[in-house]
Simulated assay, not measured.
Amino acid sequence: MFDIVASIVLYNNDKSIEDAIKSFINTDLRIRLVLIDNSPTDKLKYLASDSKIEYIFNNNNVGFGAGHNIGILKYINLCKYYLVLNPDIVFNKGVLEKLCSYIEPRKDIGILSPKVLYMDGSLQYVCRKLPTPVDFFAKRLIPSLFKKRIESYEFRDKDYNQTMNVPFISGCFMFIRSEALKKVGLFDEKIFMYTEDIDLSRRINKYYKNIYYPEVFIYHGYARESATNFKLLLIAIKSSLYYFSKWGWFFDKERQSLNMTAGKIYE
């Protein structure tokens, strides 16, 4: 039985992925890292140079959520916690141990998120409410016209040094109780990329709490590619259309209910 199994989905990654790998395997916990490679060739297989690492080559870009599902399906019954990890994340030794120590006795927590910093040490506002269509499209297309609304959506009016309830945990680092995944299921594979973390967060949040825990921090080389790459922007829009069609556009009572607890201090 592993304490933590993590997966990273790869697609023609550069050498920065090596820092994420080193961060995760630098622990005395019982771990396994699964590299899910969606690249057109298996040139990244050299990354699995440690016995703690497993490399799976898809020979097909199946998407973010579907890629992680490969690892989850294989190890869900073999670990206490499952970590969905981005390839541009780095953190110090001890982070995983602290997350395990915090979540272990708190059985009501389904997903735990640390404080997330940019590489220069400044804060990333990763705490989010479940988005309305206005929140989602305004943030990507015309953020300057909806500044106050976006600030509320990202909890910028809250104290990011407080442990709090967060309906939507960013997919860059989702530390998930395995029992929660068994209860609600895996990532929705109809979503190729960009809203799969919102979908999974809200499904888990129906039965557990999603908690932001700022006593632990990580670094995220956030690129926000959908804002500059037209192809990725189209993928984001397509994913959002599916997401809102699934859960409701402007009449989503569950979204309203889960957002009512958003930002409340967790003790």
Rank of each mutant, 00 (worst) to 15 (best):
K183M: 14
P143C: 14
F136W: 15
V134L: 15
Q124E: 08
S170T: 06
I150W: 05
F187V: 04
N161T: 02
I150L: 13
V126H: 02
S122F: 05
I198M: 10
R156W: 14
S122K: 03
Y194G: 02
G185L: 08
I211G: 00
D197Q: 06
L145E: 13
F168S: 14
N165F: 15
F192E: 12
V126E: 14
Q162H: 10
P133I: 13
I198T: 10
K182D: 07
Y125P: 06
S201K: 07
S178Y: 09
E179K: 15
F192C: 08
S178L: 13
V184Y: 13
Q162V: 02
P167L: 13
F175C: 01
L186I: 13
V134R: 09
R202W: 08
I169D: 00
E151P: 06
M174L: 13
K206M: 08
I204Y: 02
Y207K: 09
Y153N: 03
S170L: 07
R203L: 09
K129M: 10
Y160A: 10
F175H: 07
R203D: 11
G121L: 09
L181K: 00
K147G: 12
Q162E: 07
K129F: 05
F175A: 01
P214K: 07
N165E: 15
S201R: 05
T195I: 09
K182S: 11
I142L: 08
I211Y: 00
Y208G: 10
V126P: 00
V184E: 05
D120E: 06
I198F: 14
F168W: 15
Y125V: 07
S201T: 10
T195F: 02
V184F: 01
M164L: 04
D188K: 10
Q162R: 02
I150C: 04
L130H: 12
Y125G: 08
K206Y: 06
D135F: 11
I191A: 00
M174F: 14
T195L: 01
M119P: 08
I142S: 07
R149M: 14
F187I: 03
K209C: 09
L186W: 09
Q124Y: 04
Y153P: 04
A138E: 03
I142D: 04
F173Y: 11
C127D: 03
M119G: 01
E179C: 11
M164A: 09
I150Y: 03
L200A: 02
M164K: 04
M193S: 11
D159M: 14
Q124S: 09
N165A: 14
V126Y: 06
I204H: 06
